[in-house]
Deep mutational scan, measured.
Amino acid sequence: MQNSHSGVNQLGGVFVNGRPLPDSTRQKIVELAHSGARPCDISRILQVSNGCVSKILGRYYETGSIRPRAIGGSKPRVATPEVVSKIAQYKRECPSIFAWEIRDRLLSEGVCTNDNIPSVSSINRVLRNLASEKQQMGADGMYDKLRMLNGQTGSWGTRPGWYPGTSVPGQPTQDGCQQQEGGGENTNSISSNGEDSDEAQMRLQLKRKLQRNRTSFTQEQIEALEKEFERTHYPDVFARERLAAKIDLPEARIQVWFSNRRAKWRREEKLRNQRRQASNTPSHIPISSSFSTSVYQPIPQPTTPVSSFTSGSMLGRTDTALTNTYSALPPMPSFTMANNLPMQPPVPSQTSSYSCMLPTSPSVNGRSYDTYTPPHMQTHMNSQPMGTSGTTSTGLISPGVSVPVQVPGSEPDMSQYWPRLQ
């Protein structure tokens, strides 16, 4: 039975679970980093996980050691009161100082060594604690504590007292930064006198190289990059290397530039699409467009005044059976039934097929058609009795279509119309 579990990581490298990497692998990681390889490249070359490479390099940059820390136990506290007071002093002298600059000053002034120097995250935590204590304490208590930490007896009751030896409130920041720059020169002199001055200088240079600022491109470089971006948004590694040799930039910087440029292009394309949609959409909808001609068919113009009344309900007709019959029939052209047409008796099958359309009241044959006459024609229609054979009435077949029909004066039988409509 094995005491430890061995495995293979996602890159194909072998590791022992819970145990640190061998010293030979750690040394190779540092050597590759000094030669300029990126952590992701080191991870692929040595088949070590990216997190492990970053952790080893980060500890090497901070402490200069590649040895693993002790497994188990607690780390001794490195942010001692003396170190905290120095950090507060540096922050007062130059409020814009960075944590890694404070760390360098602690090393250069001999406050800490490589073994007990606090990390950048520890210094940031100390600065946050100082800021929170400043908010919790009152103004007087804060000034007393700062005077105690600074070891001075001057008056701290006013704002300019934060910067000793100065009279203009805006000047101390520059003086403090100048003092810090002077301390940086002392850093070089002190570290050069040490035993491991060369190694420390190499480590600091490598650290500065990794902690780079934003790349500033010249106009020629920007023009070359934009020209390549117009050709393709995704250049391959050969195109990037050719462009890197042409404009004297690292291939990694060119790759990052193209990634950022593609993101910018997507944002601009989104804005262009929004403007295009806004320009195509009308600002207001016309009133006429809300009524579609496919839904509402136009009603033909009436030929006679009587045809303006298109349904039985508008003429005072309360018989719903006839109203439904007229509205359900398709529109037909106007025609006239003459008196000489043969009077065919209704076929029983045809009569039964339209039995649902006729009223059940037996008085329908005896009703006159003056009910369908509009009010303004009552006088004219009353002067001509319906009993004469020459009287013409208008029957409504569908809305908007008038059918003048000659009705025999002897017997106005409704059943004569249905064979004609089939």
Rank of each mutant, 00 (worst) to 15 (best):
Q2H: 06
N3F: 09
N3L: 11
N3D: 14
G7A: 14
L11P: 02
L11K: 04
G12A: 03
V14G: 07
V14W: 11
F15P: 01
V16I: 07
G18Y: 02
R19S: 04
P20T: 01
P20N: 03
P20M: 01
P22W: 01
S24G: 14
T25V: 12
Q27S: 14
E31N: 13
E31G: 14
S35C: 08
G36Q: 06
A37S: 10
P39N: 00
C40N: 13
C40T: 08
S49W: 03
N50D: 03
G51F: 02
K55R: 15
I56H: 03
L57R: 00
G58I: 14
Y61D: 15
Y61A: 14
Y61K: 05
Y61T: 12
T63I: 04
S65Y: 04
S65F: 06
R67K: 05
R67Y: 09
R69D: 05
A70C: 11
I71V: 09
G72K: 00
G72S: 00
S74V: 00
K75F: 05
P76D: 00
R77E: 02
V78D: 02
V78M: 04
A79T: 05
A79N: 06
A79R: 07
P81G: 15
E82H: 12
V83M: 03
V83A: 15
V83H: 03
V84Y: 05
S85D: 13
K86M: 11
I87V: 08
I87G: 00
I87S: 06
I87E: 03
I87F: 15
A88S: 13
Y90W: 13
K91Q: 04
P95Y: 13
S96E: 12
I97W: 11
I97H: 13
F98V: 15
A99Y: 01
R105C: 13
R105D: 11
L106T: 03
L107P: 09
S108H: 11
V111A: 14
C112R: 12
T113R: 06
N114L: 13
D115T: 06
D115S: 08
N116C: 14
N116H: 10
I117R: 06
I117G: 15
P118V: 07
S119A: 06
S121F: 00
S121N: 15
I123K: 03
R125G: 00
L130T: 07
S132W: 13
S132N: 12
Q135E: 09
Q136Y: 13
D140V: 12
D140W: 10
Y143D: 13
L149N: 14
L149R: 06
